[in-house]
Nucleic acid binder design. Structure first.
Length: 585
RNA sequence: GCCACAGUAGCUCAGUGGUAGAGCAGCUGUUUCGUAAACAGCAGGUCGUCGGUUCAAUCCCGACCUGUGGCUCCA
């Protein structure tokens, strides 16, 4: 698996990508030109190319409608057809300010350009924009583009500043490339886990519990298989599973710091004139458990694993299917370590992580190392040691990573593992965080070799992260064709006529006895329909049984790939499926 | 939370200021069938909720709820 960003690309691919960026950046200008022609009062702010296309954030007198987008796109075609050249001009700071005097956003941008740096404008036709480029030579090079949607976006990404209208579009060097991109988006929409979750009868949502999944029997099965898998890993790596309460007096949250830092994201309940909070995280309860007895340096690390359900009051508008929910669980664990054990624990975690994600078939994972934020606890020496420990662990395991300065938690630096969903949005899956605050707040100790009391360090970690989110992303990556070991129904036995039902039942029983999940489709329907439905449900094995198979103690095997393997002995198929299940494939 | 959009049968969707329709799914019957949808019939909806306008509202207006795409947030 390449766990890192892909290495150097061929130069011709680089050329294509660079040209695409220029096309998209230029398309953003053309779009701005078109918008201004309809709304002379429009104030342009910022319009960059992106990995997928481009956008422009604009202050407008009224919200744009879909019809506006159509008009803007038409106007853009006219502008592109005119094929004006892009002209770059270097201007003085004063000149730039004069040119953009009516636009406070541009003035702010100009003020932010460091002294001594070139200030340039790019023009095509009568339209000029403050911009550092680069652009295509002529507008006509924008061979294919499409406006996609309008969204709100804050100026400078600050929710306390003005909300602008962001128009998204995409552009390519050819109509063909644009078509391929649009087709890809359509295909991605078919893999949307929210759609597949309903179609495969895995889970539902209901307004009675907003953003909280209800796992149907099949979804619960997948969920429980994932948990069972992690339980196995936990045993392997010396974790002890614990069970902790859901609801705690706010005394606990005050002590842990959540009350000060996280209260708007917690569900609170008042009972008996006391205030309680439903837990958004397991760490404080694990600290309480750790503190309930004495610990020797010999007993560390203490590794508490917990699959408890967590609740976070996510602001409306941020939730999304299974990937951002209000009710979820993590394959959570807290490791109470001596400082000298940190390195080793991280390494073990990383090795298992790589193996796990390879098994699930996640090829492209980005790792983010988030370093000390402004607001933090602990000494600089602690942070130096912690950041160094994480970085060293990554390097010594040969893992590439991106550094995110200032993005760490207030209690320690963290490693996040991100995977993309079907349409390229990145989601944090696994995580590993060093914590120097929790042991302090809960006065955690162990007795060192010399009899002194020492503070342990806590490592928060999860391989899968949220089980819900992991399942959602896995569904998108597999298009719903979950590996056999996770498939709710691993085989459907399809009797051709009613007289074959007893034999089919026997086959299913054999499979059940072998620990496999098989069911018989004994409805009085045609075989074609049964195959179609098993296919739509992405059932790994379809086992057709008729006179010939019954005679030969065989099943005719059809895989969900469409491959028809013909009649095979039942025992052989059972053995094959058991191997797949055992090897988690 | 902010901006925009959406909500009609279990699902996908059509439709109208005069109280609704299709396909699939469901149920019943017939069919017993060889690798992606047999045939027929039946049933199914206070058109998201609450208010307002109107002789009359699923349709127009408002608020709320839920969802979708972004933004912000994810200590």
């Amino acid at each position: 698996m390449s766990i890192s960003p892909t290495g150097s690309r061929g130069s011709s691919k680089d050329d294509v990508l660079a040209q695409r960026q220029r096309i998209r950046h230029s398309a953003a200008h053309v779009m701005a030109d078109a918008v201004v022609s309809f709304f002379p009062g429009a104030k342009l702010t910022h319009g960059p190319p992106t990995e997928e296309g481009f956008y422009y954030d604009i202050e407008l007198p009224r919200p744009l409608t879909p019809e506006d987008l159509v008009r803007i796109e038409e106007k853009m075609r006219e502008i592109v057809a005119a094929d004006a050249p892009f002209v770059c001009s270097e201007v003085s700071r004063e000149e730039a300010k004069r040119q953009f005097a009516g636009n406070p956003y541009k003035l702010e941008t100009i003020d932010d350009i460091p002294a001594g740096e070139r200030i340039t404008t790019y023009s095509h036709g009568a339209f000029t924009d403050l911009c550092e480029g680069p652009h295509v030579q002529r507008v006509g090079e924008i061979k294919a583009f499409k406006l996609l949607n309008v969204a709100g976006a804050y100026w400078r990404g600050d929710e306390h500043k003005a909300m602008l209208q962001r128009i998204y579009g995409t552009g390519f060097e050819s109509k063909d490339a644009l078509e391929r991109h649009l087709t890809m988006l359509e295909e991605a929409a078919k893999r949307d886990h929210r759609k597949l979750g309903r179609e495969l009868e895995l889970f539902i949502f209901d307004p009675v519990a907003p953003a909280s999944p209800f796992f149907l029997p099949k979804g619960a099965l997948v969920y429980n298989e994932l948990v069972a898998y992690v339980r196995g890993l936990n045993t392997l790596h010396g974790y002890q599973e614990v069970i902790t309460p859901q609801i705690f007096s706010t005394d606990l949250w005050k002590r842990s710091g959540h009350y000060d830092n996280y209260i708007e994201n917690m569900f609170l309940v008042d009972v008996d004139e006391r205030e309680f909070g439903i837990k958004p995280m397991n760490c404080p309860s694990h600290a309480v458990m750790y503190a309930s007895r004495m610990h020797s340096y010999r007993d560390l690390p203490v590794r508490y694993a917990d699959f408890a359900r967590l609740h976070r009051y996510e602001r409306s508008g941020v939730t999304h299917g299974l990937t951002r929910v209000r009710s979820f669980a993590q394959d959570d664990a807290h490791l109470f370590c001596r400082p000298d054990q940190i390195q080793q624990e991280i390494t073990v975690f990383l090795k298992q992580f790589a193996e796990t994600y390879k098994m699930f078939g996640f090829g492209e994972i980005s790792i983010r190392l988030s370093l000390r934020p402004e607001k933090r606890v602990g000494t600089d020496a602690m942070w130096d040691a912690a950041e160094e420990a994480l970085e060293r662990a990554l390097t010594s395991n040969g893992l590439a990573f991106a550094v995110a300065p200032g993005e760490g938690a207030f209690y320690g630096p963290k490693l996040d593992f991100l995977v993309k969903d079907a349409i390229g949005r990145e989601w944090q899956m696994g995580t590993l965080q060093l914590d120097y605050s929790l042991p302090e707040r809960f006065e955690l100790e162990y007795v060192a070799e010399d009899g002194s009391r020492v503070r342990p360090v806590v490592i928060h970690r999860a391989w899968l992260g949220s089980i819900e989110r992991f399942m959602g992303i896995l569904i998108e990556h597999t298009g719903g064709a979950l590996p056999l070991w996770l498939s709710p129904v691993q085989a459907v036995v399809i009797p051709i006529a009613d007289r074959h039902i007893p034999y089919a039942d026997g086959v299913a029983q054999q499979m059940g006895a072998a620990g496999l999940r098989a069911r018989v489709d004994g409805r009085s329907e045609r075989m074609n329909l049964k195959i179609r439905e098993a296919q739509v449900q992405k059932t790994p094995y379809m086992l057709v049984v008729g006179d010939k198979e019954q005679e030969a103690q065989a099943v005719a095997v059809r895989l969900r790939t469409g491959e028809n393997q013909g009649a095979r002995p039942v025992a052989e198929v059972v053995g094959e499926m058991q191997t797949l299940a055992r090897e988690r494939r």
